[in-house]
Design a protein around this nucleic acid. Structure first.
Lengths: 146, 146
DNA sequence: CCTCGTTCAATGCAGTTGCATGAAGTTTCA
DNA sequence: TGAAACTTCATGCAACTGCATTGAACGAGG
């Protein structure tokens, strides 16, 4: 029932605005380079790091809604970047894997994405500041109810 | 061309995730209370604070895209919370104003919104932490290109 | 082996967004 | 004055999102 303190409200507005501007910048930068949006990168990277896996697993890693991920994977598959093969153990699911185009796309996206992150955050907050930010934001990394 | 440092990347992911979870929580809380989404609150508050004004002015205050705001105002007007009267000085625009339902709605939303902010941020980061967050995020408050 | 509760994934539908464009009004300046 | 440039706001269209539901397959217990 407690109302937020003035400082909490300030941090709140800054947090939302900063994240909005930063992610907008990234999305715009990728778009201008003719590349897919940032969420594709997250999927491609997770598959490259974690190897072939099922949507279920990706859902946990990316903490995305089930239906969001389902449709995102549809689009990525339609673009020919991943393959879906039936899962032998469980006929409900399929195993997702990066193909060579997918790997190439991830590699092509990274420099652009990295540059955008650097412009949006790295160039504005020094290393020490980033460390402070990361540790201040750590408690916000899990769902509110949990 | 510089690639982000490891700490920058950590802060980046935490920032996006924190903001996403926090805003999700707020939106969900308002929704569960049968109230309009957070962006309505921002409009109602801006009108209450700034008095009658044109979409153009709101657009600056809220830093929203022109078409986003245009349609948002449509919905809010359709819900009967604001009035649009032709602007005498400039026939292109109209003046927006809160009516009594609009004021009542803003007042009704605040406790719920405040509670959600407190749960998402206030209860997790103390006052000093919020102050630190706010000052670290200050440089991110303006567009990347500007 | 069946049945019931659970998990995995896709999808219908309505609402929202982004981009591009359009229509109407205003300002500038020769 | 009047044509060109700019501002203000709305909207067509395609893409995306969220919620709710469905359908299929799994697994536990009788």
């Amino acid at each position: 029932m407690a109302k937020p303190a003035a400082m909490t409200l300030l941090a709140w507005t800054r947090l939302l605005r900063a994240a909005d501007l930063a992610s907008q910048h990234c999305a715009a930068t990728l778009r201008e380079a003719g590349l897919p949006p940032p969420e594709w990168y997250d999927v491609l990277l997770a598959l490259e790091r974690g190897g072939p896996q099922r949507p279920r697993d990706l859902q946990v890693t990316l903490s995305a809604e089930q239906y969001t991920l389902s449709r995102l994977l549809d689009r990525i598959a339609k673009a020919g970047l991943i393959t879906r093969t039936p899962c032998p153990d469980d006929a409900r699911g399929h195993t997702l894997d990066l193909n060579s185009e997918g790997k190439a796309m991830r590699a092509a996206m990274w420099p652009v994405y990295a540059e955008a992150i650097e412009a949006a955050l790295g160039a504005r907050v020094d290393d020490e500041g980033c460390a402070a930010l990361a540790s201040l934001l750590a408690p916000l990394a899990e769902p509110v109810s949990g």
